[in-house]
């Protein structure tokens, strides 16, 4: 039964999560391998390299998350900062 107190939804089981991870990693590899077969050049040379999209996307996200984390140290305030109750 969905919604019982003891949570046993199949999506939450460690086994399922492990399988999802395996599936995801296979997809990631496929997306890079596929590039070998379709060839194709990028607009500016560098973006035609094998796995460029993968590396660029990953690095861009790392940079953005870390930038946000650092900015958060300066910008984050308590919810009541402007003196409004939020609800």
């Amino acid at each position: 039964m969905v919604g019982s107190i003891k949570d046993d939804h199949w999506l939450e089981r460690p086994k399922t999560i492990k399988r999802l991870w395996y599936g995801f990693v296979i997809l990631l590899l496929l997306s890079v391998v596929a590039q070998l077969f379709i060839g194709g050049k990028g607009y500016f040379g560098i973006d035609g390299w094998i796995g460029f999209g993968a590396g660029f996307g990953f690095l861009a996200c790392v940079v953005m998350v870390i930038t946000a984390k650092i900015l958060g140290k300066v910008l984050k305030r308590e919810e009541s900062f402007y003196g409004e109750s939020d609800d």
């Binding site: 999209g53 990953f58 308590e78």
Partner: peptide, 30 residues
């Protein structure tokens, strides 16, 4: 293929960096 790589590896970054993105009860100054 370029966009699939870009997006799926962003997804990988999200789940690997999840500990850095723990939600806090805060607002951000602007």
């Amino acid at each position: 293929i370029y966009y699939l790589q870009l997006l799926m590896f962003s997804g990988l970054a999200f789940f690997l960096l999840l500990p850095l993105m723990r939600r806090t009860r805060t607002i951000s100054l602007d």
